[in-house]
């Protein structure tokens, strides 16, 4: 009985593409559909407005924090439960590798880009999609920035490849189970949401 259940699991398990359940072309089509959902949700949440996005850094609008953390936690819990139910093989899900130096330096440069430009890549596409010219120009800037990285690759290859730690999970690094880490992250997020609601009351502003 157990063996049969196990067999059934391995047949119906995600990820669908990696397990050969759907074809590569269908995967690309579904990427387009998923993208539509991604863009729609971002725009509906107000991520097409740079002034709304920048609000998180001044406390007048904390939508970025709320949507971002709720999104990450929803997916994280979904994956943990899917794995528990045997619906997905987490060992086949891509875990972003950790190159310590470039993760930090890249993040710092992106943070500067965020406060100066008011967008991140995904949201600038959303802004451009509804006619925000600043969003469109930001997308142009992205192209130039990636091109500079590509053309000067040799100059920063050392930095880019430094301190490769493989693909560790933050839970294992901290010596916690995935479930306990998830619980702590949810509690931290709830504390941040509480602070965010407080900040929005303290620094009220008309919405953009």
């Amino acid at each position: 009985m157990i063996a049969r259940l196990h067999d059934k699991k391995t047949i119906t398990m995600g990820p669908l593409v990696t397990n050969g359940i759907i074809s590569e072309n269908l995967n690309l089509f579904l990427a387009f559909i998923i993208g539509i959902g991604f863009g729609f949700v971002l725009e509906q949440s107000g991520f097409s407005s740079s002034r709304k996005l920048a609000g998180i850094f001044y406390g007048y609008d904390t939508v970025v924090l709320k949507v971002f953390f709720t999104g990450a936690i929803t997916c994280m819990l979904g994956l943990l439960f899917f794995s528990l139910f045997g619906w997905i093989d987490l060992s086949l899900v891509y875990i972003n590798p950790t190159y310590l130096t470039s993760a930090i330096v890249g993040g710092i440069i992106m943070g500067a880009g965020f406060i100066i430009g008011g967008y991140c890549p995904g949201t600038s596409f959303c802004g451009a999609a509804i006619g925000k010219l600043d969003g469109l120009i930001f997308v142009g800037g992205l192209f130039i920035g990636v091109l500079i990285f590509g053309l000067g690759y040799k100059l920063w290859e050392g930095l880019y490849m430094a301190k490769n730690l493989g693909s560790p999970k933050i839970s294992s690094v901290l010596g916690l189970s995935d479930g306990i880490f998830a619980l702590l992250l949810i509690l931290a997020a709830l504390a941040m949401f509480w602070a965010a609601e407080w900040a929005e009351k303290k620094f009220p502003r008309e919405e953009y």
Binding site: G113, I116, P121, G122, F149
Partner: peptide
């Protein structure tokens, strides 16, 4: 400012192997 921010974000996203969506 949007252009400058875009250039920085584009460069940083390559160094960091992904942006707010892909990496974070």
């Amino acid at each position: 400012l949007a252009l400058t921010g875009g250039v920085l974000f584009g460069f940083g996203s390559q160094l960091g192997r992904g942006c707010t969506s892909g990496a974070a």
